[in-house]
Amino acid sequence: MVEVYIIRHGETDTNKEKRINGNSTDLPLNEKGRKQANQLREVFDLSDFDEVISSPLIRAYETAQILTENTGIEVKTDVRLREADYGSWDGVSEEKLYKEHPEVFDDNGYLLPDYIKYAQDAENYEDVYQRVDDILNEISQLGDNKKVALVCHGFISRALMKVIMNIDDISKIIQPRNCGVSRYRLNKDGKRYLIYYGRKTPLEF
Rank of each mutant, 00 (worst) to 15 (best):
S171A: 09
M161C: 15
D106A: 04
V75H: 06
L111C: 05
N166Q: 15
A60C: 03
Y61H: 10
S24N: 11
K76V: 08
I53W: 02
M165C: 13
M161A: 13
G91E: 00
R41Q: 14
S140D: 13
S93G: 05
V75Q: 01
E62Y: 06
N70L: 10
K117I: 06
A119T: 09
K188V: 11
L203M: 09
H153E: 02
I156W: 03
Y5T: 11
A119I: 13
L81Y: 04
E95V: 10
T71A: 03
E95F: 10
Q36M: 05
A149G: 13
T63F: 10
R192E: 04
T77S: 06
V75F: 07
T77Q: 08
E95A: 10
R34I: 09
Q120R: 01
D26E: 07
L27Y: 10
Q120A: 15
L67E: 06
V43T: 12
V148W: 10
I53K: 03
F205S: 15
G190A: 14
E74Q: 13
V132N: 09
L194I: 06
V92W: 04
E69Y: 08
T71K: 06
D50S: 06
S47H: 06
K200P: 00
M1C: 13
R82E: 06
T14H: 14
V92C: 11
A122D: 04
D189S: 13
L57E: 00
R59I: 04
K35F: 15
H101Q: 11
E126C: 07
D169E: 07
I170V: 10
N145G: 12
I6M: 07
D127A: 08
V52E: 08
L27I: 05
D134I: 02
L203S: 12
A64L: 11
Y86F: 15
R131S: 03
I58H: 08
T12A: 00
S157Q: 08
F155M: 11
K146V: 07
I66M: 04
T25H: 03
G154V: 14
K147Q: 13
D121N: 15
I66F: 11
Y61S: 02
K16L: 08
Y110Q: 10
N145F: 15
I6W: 00
L81Q: 00
N70T: 07
Y5I: 12
E138L: 14
R80F: 01
I20A: 05
S47R: 14
I156Q: 02
K147I: 08
V4D: 03
K172P: 01
N15F: 01
R185L: 12
K32Q: 08
N70R: 10
L40E: 02
I195N: 11
Q130N: 09
L112R: 15
L97G: 06
R192Q: 14
E138M: 15
V151G: 02
I116E: 07
I6K: 05
Q120K: 13
L81V: 09
Y197L: 05
D48P: 01
D78N: 15
R59H: 06
K18D: 11
H9F: 07
L186P: 04
L160F: 01
R177S: 09
D78H: 07
D168H: 07
F105I: 04
F49A: 03
S88M: 07
E138I: 12
K200I: 15
L81M: 08
D144I: 12
V52P: 01
P202D: 14
H9I: 00
A60F: 12
E100T: 12
A37S: 13
K200D: 05
T12I: 04
D133W: 03
F49T: 06
I73V: 02
S55K: 00
